[in-house]
Computed example of a mutant assay.
Amino acid sequence: MRRHFQMFADYNRWANRRVYAACEDLSDEDYRADAGAFFGSIHRTLNHLLVADRIWMSRMTVQGEAPKALDVVLFDDFSALRDARAAEDQRIIGFVDGLNDERIAGDFTYTTISNPTTITQPLGPVLSHVFNHQTHHRGQVHAILTSLGGPSLVLDLVYFLRSDGSRWM
């Protein structure tokens, strides 16, 4: 399972880079406009992804600051957000690289944010959730980008595997 999650961590970084590159040329108005996504705008959705990853990484590593709400805007500036995203992606890769199958199969305990409850569950399904959550919200950003006339991004895992991620095949 470790290799599987390493592939997803690498794919996650690759897909995030593509999304951020597509957002670079947006006007500030388009970037911040409420487009009806769960968190409204591209700006707020990208912030949410960073928030969620910091929360999960804090839970899994017992290190780092965890935001107290899912809709916090950590960075108002696009460049600062992009840099923080890149650093978080690297942090996720480093975390997954340090895992072994025993740890992945083992339980860990954390407290939820929205409705504080203590949860104990295996780490593996949580890692799957973290990567699936990224894919879900990147899809929302992609939909907003295309509605603004932007390029239709190729973000499929299989495309990654056929290109930059060929080492995982």
Rank of each mutant, 00 (worst) to 15 (best):
V96K: 02
R18E: 13
R18C: 03
N115G: 14
T120D: 04
F38Q: 02
D83H: 08
S166T: 05
E29P: 14
S152L: 12
D25Q: 05
F8T: 00
G40F: 07
D34L: 05
I92H: 02
R17C: 15
R59N: 11
I42C: 04
V62C: 11
D25V: 15
Q63S: 10
F38H: 01
R3F: 15
F38D: 03
K68G: 14
M169T: 11
E65Q: 09
M169Q: 09
S166Y: 10
F38I: 14
L161M: 01
E88T: 13
A33N: 15
G36P: 07
T118K: 06
G64E: 06
Q140E: 12
H137N: 08
A66F: 01
T45P: 03
A15Y: 04
P151A: 15
Q140H: 08
P125V: 05
R59Y: 00
D53V: 06
Q90E: 07
G165E: 03
T111N: 09
F131S: 04
D10L: 01
W56E: 00
A80L: 10
A22W: 01
Q140T: 07
V141S: 04
W168P: 04
T146F: 06
R54I: 04
C23H: 10
M1K: 10
R162N: 15
G165S: 07
A21H: 06
A33D: 14
A37D: 13
L145I: 15
Y159V: 06
A9G: 00
D34I: 04
T45Y: 09
H137W: 10
N16Y: 10
G40M: 13
M1R: 09
A21G: 08
C23M: 06
R32T: 12
E24Q: 13
F95T: 05
V73T: 15
D107Q: 14
D89V: 02
A15P: 13
Y110K: 00
A87F: 08
S79D: 11
I42D: 06
W168R: 05
G149N: 06
T146G: 05
L153I: 03
T146P: 04
P116Q: 02
L161V: 04
P125Y: 03
L145K: 10
C23P: 08
L153T: 00
G139Y: 00
I119S: 05
E24S: 09
R3H: 14
Q140K: 08
A80H: 08
V62Y: 10
R13K: 12
F160H: 02
I119D: 07
N115W: 13
L157D: 09
A69L: 14
S128Q: 12
N47H: 01
G36N: 02
L50N: 07
G106L: 11
L123C: 08
D164T: 06
S128W: 09
Y110V: 00
A84C: 01
H142S: 12
D53F: 00
D34H: 12
L70I: 08
E65I: 13
G64V: 00
R2E: 15
D107R: 07
R85Y: 04
Q140R: 03
D53A: 09
T117R: 10
H142Y: 12
N115K: 08
Y11D: 01
D71E: 08
G165H: 04
F78D: 06
T112E: 13
F5W: 15
A86E: 08
E65A: 14
D76H: 10
